[in-house]
Amino acid sequence: MPSVAATYYDGVTAKRNAVQVSLHPEGLAIFAASGRPIAIWPYQEIRRIEGFAGAGLAVTLLKVPGSSAEPQLEIPDPVFASDLAARAPLTLTKGVSARRERRAVVFWALAAIVSLIGLAFYGLPAIAGRLAPLVPAAAEIRLGAAMDPEIRRTFGRSSPLRTCVAPEGQRVLNELVGRFEQAASLHVPLKVVVVDGPLVNAFALPGGYVYLFNGLLQKARGPDEAAGVLAHEIGHVKLRHGLRSVIQAGGLGFLLGTVFGDFAGGTAIILASRSLIQSAFSRDSERQADAFAIDLMLKAGGDPMGLARFFTDAAVADPGGFAWISSHPANAEREQAIRNALKDAAARRPALTPEQWTALRAICQKTE
């Protein structure tokens, strides 16, 4: 059959070469414009390349002995292309493989996204709950220490929160915390401070860090209300609720950082700290902390009814305005649960004497 014009690529460079091609018994013969033979491609080694524009076709040679090159031909003549197709298998090669690769990439990318979403919404909470008890105490303490400066900056706004350290008030706080700590059998030592802020708030970080705001001390009507809130936050420390929430909020990277101990500093600490501040614990977690607080005060001294009274007094005094109250859902239900648990309990002495309570409320007369 007469030769026809074609374009040849040697598979090594991008140079276009004008050639002539013709059909021979042993294969497709390729000649340079000068008539010099370039190659003969066996028909069984020729494969179609998808995507050629026009009535002709583009083909490639599957194997080049001693070379990794993939030479290609573009043959625009439709009659010649038809005759070549009658002699060669011309099954699709690069176009199909490329499409398969693209489909595989898209499929696995979508699968990864779905897996991450499912893990974030369903798997990670369960993982966090199971992982938290396994985190070594030393790692949890380091985590709390890393979060402490960010917490103080967040609440302090223009400047970090200052710690209240008036000597008499500090002695009272240390005595109360010491009684609670001894009775609680904690896995980490407590680091309880009163911070000089007007918020009626209290919260616990992983690693035994507990903060009481001066605003809460001033709003409480008696020592058992403040002691009840403190005992509740110690319950979160004991049950590792904060650690579980931080792992869950921090995501996969923070989860791995917690496992391997590489979580000090960085964006993960900032995001996890702020998430812990802004989110509320689950109702189950709050009920567990309430139950722990009741048991702790019965062991260490104080009237657990103070915690129930704080719910009532705060809600009546300023509905919705108390940060600690507003961040702890289902207060009426929990208040009633506390009262039911203590229905038959004998009257208890207050957690602090009047003189101690006065000193504790004055603890912010000196700060550092």
Rank of each mutant, 00 (worst) to 15 (best):
L173Y: 03
R153G: 04
S185T: 11
P133L: 14
G235E: 04
V195T: 08
A145V: 07
P167T: 13
R142K: 14
K238N: 13
A137K: 10
V195W: 07
V135Y: 02
L216P: 04
L186A: 07
V200F: 08
G156I: 14
P133C: 13
R240L: 14
L176T: 10
I141F: 05
P133E: 12
L186W: 03
P160A: 13
I234A: 12
E175G: 15
C164V: 13
G228N: 05
A231D: 06
V237Y: 03
F213T: 01
H187A: 15
P167Y: 10
P136W: 09
A227V: 11
R130G: 15
R157C: 07
G208I: 03
E168K: 14
N201R: 04
A137V: 10
R171P: 01
K191A: 14
A139R: 12
F203Y: 15
E233G: 12
L143D: 00
R240M: 11
L131G: 03
H241N: 09
R171T: 14
V177C: 02
P149L: 03
V177P: 06
C164Q: 07
L239P: 00
Q182M: 10
V237P: 02
V172L: 13
H241W: 12
P223E: 05
R130A: 15
T163L: 13
L199R: 10
V237H: 02
L212H: 03
L216V: 13
R130Q: 15
G144L: 00
A184G: 09
K219Y: 09
